[in-house]
Structures are given as C-alpha cells and as structure tokens.
C-alpha cells in the first residue's frame, strides 16, 4: 500500500476544475480587455508615475498667499454651511419619504414611487446631480444645497424605511388597539422605536455631507470646490495642495466629531 502514491488536489468551489479555469480566464480576459480599452500600457503608466514624482515637487510644500488663505477660509465656511443646511432639510424631507417608502405602512403605488425616487437619488453621483441643478437654478451655494439635500434624502429615507419595515408591529398594534388615531399611532407606536438609530444616522450623514460639500463646487455648486478647480486651471499646484490640506483637515474633524457623537449615543 505504501508503494502506491496517492495524489491530492484541493476541491474547488466551482464543482469542476474546468469551470474554475474558465472563470479565472474570463476574469483575466476582462481585465486585459479593460487595460487595452483605456490604453493602460505599462510604459505609459511608468512614464506617468515618473512625471508624477516630478510634479510632486510642484505640489510641495503647500502654500497660499494671505489673500488665498482668506479665500480658502471663506469658501470652506460656505461648504460647511451648505452641509449643515442640507443635512437639516434633507432629514426633514426624508421622514415623510421614508414613511411612504416603507412597505408595511404605505399603499403600493406610493411605495413604488418613493422607492424609485430613493433609487434614483442613490444611483446618481452628487456631481451629476449638481451639474443638472446648476443648469436649473444657476451657479452658487443654493445649487449645492439642493444637490446635497437630494442625496441625503436617498440615503436617509432608505435606511429609515428599512428601520420602519423592521419595527415591531406588535407594539404598533397595541397602541392602535387603545383607540389611537393614525397620527397618535405613529407618535407613540413607531417613533420611539426608531429614534436611537435616527440620531446616529443623522450625524453620520452630516459627516458625508461635509465631504460632498467640498467637491460640488467643482461644477459650480458653491463651496471650496470652485477654488480648487480655479487653482488647478491656473496650475498653481502649491495653492492646490494648501486647499487639499484644508479639505482633509475639515473632513477629518467632521469624521472625528461624528464618530464621537455616535459612540456616545450608543
């Protein structure tokens, strides 16, 4: 028995080895096609990164004249203000949308309409929304506010609707059984069940909104983004990196605040 050698091969999740290789080949093939499709030959990438290193010297150190620094501060405050307003308006609009998008609380046509709205909001990147809104209402922070509000509703209403679908219908029925009106049912049966998550989600979304508010300006929707684009177009790369440092700092502070508040609340 010891003379006969047994072999062993790892069992594959694909059932048959041929399928496994076919799957791997398909994936590799797709990536090669992609690389060819976007013209990513190694030489070009290497050259690019070589140039990148040279450019790094142009970016460093971050530098801004006093006037530029003032402009960064002004526009950054504008960004933060946009984020603040949009978080409040976004959440305010999310609440009714969420109720209408909860399968257990809303009639079917209304449910589909609101789910569709949520999907649309989530699928479209903030930049795309901002471009359209700028065309509709003109340049400036109002366009940014509308954009971020729209994105907030998609995010918030979806999660809130899921929470509403998960609520304990037993206690809702219990409140209804006491003879409460629909509004009372809502206030006493539904709201207490979702309040804790609500607060955490609000702060989380505020954090995301701060991030978004720093870029929508690139397409003219207010905030620091416009300054960044101008700096890029003028090739003043040290100014660019000063702006980037400011953005990173603000984003980090927002993230820290949001994390701290959420930890406290749980």
């Amino acid at each position: 028995m010891a003379t006969e050698r047994r072999s062993w091969r790892r069992p594959t999740a694909f059932g048959r080895r041929e399928f496994k290789w076919a799957a791997y080949l398909a994936v590799v093939g797709f990536f090669l096609w992609s690389a060819w499709g976007i013209g990513a030959d190694p030489a070009r990438i290497a050259r690019g990164f070589g140039r990148g290193l040279t450019l790094l010297g142009d970016f460093l150190p971050p530098e801004a004249t006093p006037r530029q620094a003032q402009r960064i501060v002004d526009k950054m405050v504008e960004s933060v203000a946009m984020a603040m307003i949009s978080t409040v308006t976004g959440i305010a609009i999310s609440v009714p949308v969420a109720f209408m998008a909860a399968e257990n609380l809303s009639p079917k046509p209304l449910y589909y309409l609101n789910r569709g709205f949520i999907s649309l909001s989530r699928a479209l990147n903030a930049i795309i929304v901002a471009i359209l809104v700028v065309k509709a209402v003109g340049l400036g922070p109002l366009a940014g506010i509308i954009t971020i509000t729209f994105k907030t509703v998609g995010f918030f209403a979806k999660l809130l609707a899921e929470d509403l679908e998960d609520i304990d219908m037993g206690s809702v029925d219990a409140v209804r059984a006491t003879g409460a009106s629909p509004v009372q049912t809502l206030v006493y049966g539904v709201v207490p069940q979702i309040i804790p998550r609500f607060a955490g989600l609000s702060v989380y979304r505020w954090d995301i909104n701060i991030r978004t508010s720093t870029v929508v300006g690139i397409v003219g929707a207010g905030g620091i983004g416009s300054v960044l684009l101008t700096a890029f177009n003028r090739y003043s790369f040290q100014y660019v990196s000063a702006i980037l440092v400011a953005i990173i700092a603000v984003v980090l502070v927002a993230e820290g605040v949001s994390a701290a508040v959420r930890r406290r609340y749980q």
Partner: peptide, 25 residues
C-alpha cells in the same frame, strides 16, 4: 479616503493627461 474621486481625477489628469487612464488611477 479624504480626497474625493473627482479631486483625485483632477490630479491624475495633470499627471497622465486627460483620458480614461487618469480616471482608472
């Protein structure tokens, strides 16, 4: 994580020239 995709894209368009390669990077 703190720099948005579109800002990264602005940077890499400078590095690689405009086109999808800059986008992928």
């Amino acid at each position: 994580r703190s720099v948005n995709t579109i800002v990264w894209a602005l940077i890499f368009v400078v590095v690689f020239g405009s086109g999808p390669l800059a986008g992928a990077v």
